[in-house]
Structure formats: structure tokens, C-alpha cells
Amino acid sequence: MARQTTKLDTKKVSAELFTLTYGALVTRLLKDYENIDDVNKQLERMGYNIGIRLIEDFLAKTNCGRCYDFRDTAEKIQLAFRTYLGVFPQVSNWSAANDEFSLLFDNNPLTEFVELPDHCLNLKYSNIFAGILRGACEMVQMEVTSWFVQDQLKGDNITELRIKFIKKLEDAIPVGED
């Protein structure tokens, strides 16, 4: 969560506190909603609300320009994970049309202390990521969707987040912007 490069912000929060806070949030949601699908949806929605704000921070601090293809976007998403979470996901498994790729995480800071109990195997614990990506990309006029293909919490070796480009939101592109 902490940025290293800015003069302004030298405050850092312990990674553990962050992980625990997220854990508390997810368990609270599980208590409030009986249906696990609803919890997944709520996590995605929260992420969306974070994403539409976080993108401005990312743009302001990195001086990124507009993406001209989805490979650009992939690189920037990778950079964002590094900036905000300190993890280095690998970009791979490109589809033939170059509109779909996977981010492979060796470790996921959100799930460091987590063991999924048997009754919530459908839970997409880190679904907040999917929402953040959707929100952030929407603000730069690009519609994407993402989902987890593999998850370490469910016994896989790595966590794989698949991201698919849907369309550019041409109407929303501001004038004077190429």
C-alpha cells in the first residue's frame, strides 16, 4: 500500500495489518450475506469503487500515457500491482487475438494467513482485484472483465487471474484526447 517513490508520502502501513483488515472485511461479509455468490459480488463492487479512484492516483504518480494495445495495458496493470501491493505478477498465456491474458501470482498478500473452510469453497476470496481492475480500466475508457482461473487457496500451485478486453468505451473518451 505504500509508495516508495514520492516525497510526500513516507507513511507505510504494516502489510500484516492490511492483510488482517481485508480478512476481517471478508468474514464480516460472509456473516452479513448468507449466499456466497452475494459476497463475491460485494467484494467485486467494493473493488470497483476503489478502482475508479485509484486510477487517478496511478496516473498522477506514474505519468503514464494512454495504452495503444492490450499489451501496454498488461504492462501497466503489472506495474500497478508492484506499486500498490509490492507483488510481481507474471504476464502470460496470451490469447491468439491478444485480447486476453493471465496474471500469475506466486504469492498473494491478501491470502497470506488464510485457509478456506469447507463451507465456502465457492468464495472468491480475492475478488476485490477483479473489481479494482474493472473500475480502473473503465475510467480510462476500456471495458475489461477478469476472473480467477487458479487459486492457491483452493490447492493450486499458483494464483492465476485472467483478464479479458471487451471493448473501448468510445463515447466516454474525452475530447482533445488521442
Binding site: 486510477i55 487517478e56 496516473l59 498522477a60 503514464c64 500515457g65 494512454r66 475510467m139 480510462v140 466516454a172 474525452p174 475530447v175 482533445g176 484526447e177 488521442d178
Partner: peptide
Amino acid sequence: KSSGIEILETDTFKLHCFQTLTG
């Protein structure tokens, strides 16, 4: 695909405008 107004100049002031990617 040109940018919009970036600088607008008059006798007494200059207006500098910056548009972010989000508009």
C-alpha cells in the same frame, strides 16, 4: 486527434490547462 487548449494567453494572465486521461 489534437489536444484541446493547453495554454490561453492574454495581456494580463496565462491560463494553463491540463486534461487527465480520465477527462
